[in-house]
Amino acid sequence: MLKVENLGVRYGAVAAVRDLSLSVGQGELVALLGPNGAGKSSTINALTGLVAPSAGRIVLDGQDISRVRTEDRIRAGLTSTPEGRRIFANLTVGENLRLGAATRRDPKGVRQDMERFLALFPVLSERYAQAAGTLSGGEQQMLAIARSLMSRPKLLLLDEPSLGLAPKIVVRIFDFIGQLKAEGLTLLVVEQNARQALRFADRVYVMSSGVLRFDGPPSGLADEHGLLNLYIGG
């Protein structure tokens, strides 16, 4: 479904990502692991087009989207839930969800999806008309994911959904991610929390200092001596 070839991202003189190639197949959940500053978010932002890659190709469903604008990539079915959640704090929970569905033209379907997520996350339903900024971190993360799903993406990129959240909440969020996978959604999950990310992963990539270090099944990661500790620290 997604194929990335020799991707490079630079910020001025700093090369954040170098010669990175990866792929995500239909229905797969792929984990991209790496320590802080490895270039994971830069990769995700290059995939959505928020930063312009300095090299390489991004192919979605056989179409080269490297030069397509962010908005059109979202319309083509690729969505990301950005690092740090980035909910619209000054809008209500309901308004956040509505903006998630901004590209859709089927009001009935939108309403159904909205009801589904509100049923799934009762907190969101209770706080529907409140400013989203008043939600707790975990609730904000759920809102952010739900908001991304409102556009009915084919491929969802999640950037560190566990960031800054209590362990119990992280488990719940990954339960939900597992459920999404079971429903057939294709996912690329960026994480520092390897244990959670590997629960449902079909394949794993590990990167550090902008370079891919490992590519294989989760079991392979345990085999490679000390790799987990070296790059991820647990």
């Binding site: 928020l50 990301s80 950005p82 980035r86 901004a102």
Partner: peptide
Amino acid sequence: SRDFATVRLMGIR
């Protein structure tokens, strides 16, 4: 007014 990049991530031009 708070976060233009994320508005674009909603597919809004």
